Amino acid sequence: MTEAVLDRPAPGDKTAGGDAAPRRRDRRATLLELSGVSVSFDGFRAINNLSFQIGEPELRAVIGPNGAGKTTFMDIVTGKTRPDTGRVTWGERNVSLLKMSESRIAREGIGRKFQKPTVFEAQTVRENLAMALRNPRGPLDVLLHRKSAAGARRIEEVAHEIGLAEHLPRIAGELSHGQKQWLEIGMLLAQDPRLLLVDEPAAGMTPAEREHTTDLLKRLAERHAVVVVEHDMEFVRRLDCKVTVLHEGSVLAEGSLDHVTANPQVIEVYLGR
């Protein structure tokens, strides 16, 4: 039997009284599924008949050699790249992401953090989080936006979650590399995502920052679907989650880290290097 949990309301979901209705979902129900997806660039097949699915909540690590298709995989999910063939479906209603723009996909609840932090370095941590809050984005909405108590509370919640509650007044450019990574994750959280795509979060971090990042991602995966693309095998081991190995645009192996690292093909094409 699956366990039903309450989730935040989808945009526009209302009860008869006008309040947002909580959305129910089955724990670990499939959230995102790619089926038979292929894409080529100038004759090079970057993704080759790829099938992948992740539930909600779930933590998944994606590993593989350079050129395995990891970045293209994330580009397809976020709408940056359109595949030549295949399906990409989302949510309880299995809607197609291939019919949506990048901005619409983001509003659906898919957030992506690139390897290099992209925060507003001249603004404070609080201002960065405030700009990322999920609010109406029309021109008049932006011009007429006013701070609210609910927004302030949400900023405090996110800052506490990512470990930057004591740094809210600081200029983002003064933060360490690891702290900037956490801030960018916080900016994604402020948008209430259901799926987070996180690219090489451990790169350039101190051991203490890496430990904090591991704990943060594992906590987030208790409520969200989280995909972590990473090369650092020790960091992946600390995540203690299911691992998907990509090679030449396809899934080569899948399972626990011990399982995939014992696979002779994985050793040959990836670990042996």
Rank of each mutant, 00 (worst) to 15 (best):
G163Q: 08
A122Q: 08
E156H: 10
T124I: 14
K113V: 13
E161S: 09
V125N: 03
L144Y: 01
E92T: 09
R87T: 15
G79L: 10
H145F: 10
S176Y: 09
R112T: 11
T118Y: 06
I155D: 01
A152N: 15
Q123G: 00
E102A: 02
D84V: 09
F114Y: 14
R104H: 08
A165G: 09
E161P: 03
L140S: 05
E108Y: 15
P169K: 14
L98F: 04
D141V: 04
L164T: 09
G138A: 07
G163C: 08
S101K: 11
A172L: 12
V88T: 04
E157C: 00
H145C: 02
T118P: 00
A165M: 13
V125P: 03
S101G: 14
P139A: 01
L129D: 03
A149P: 14
E102F: 12
S101H: 08
R126V: 15
G109L: 07
L129N: 02
E166L: 13
V77P: 06
E156W: 10
M100E: 09
A150I: 12
R154C: 00
S96F: 03
T118R: 13
I171H: 10
R170L: 07
A172N: 03
G138H: 11
E166D: 12
N94A: 06
M100C: 02
G111M: 12
T124C: 03
G109H: 13
L175H: 05
A172V: 11
V77Q: 06
I171A: 01
R93S: 06
R82Q: 09
T85R: 01
F114N: 03
E92V: 05
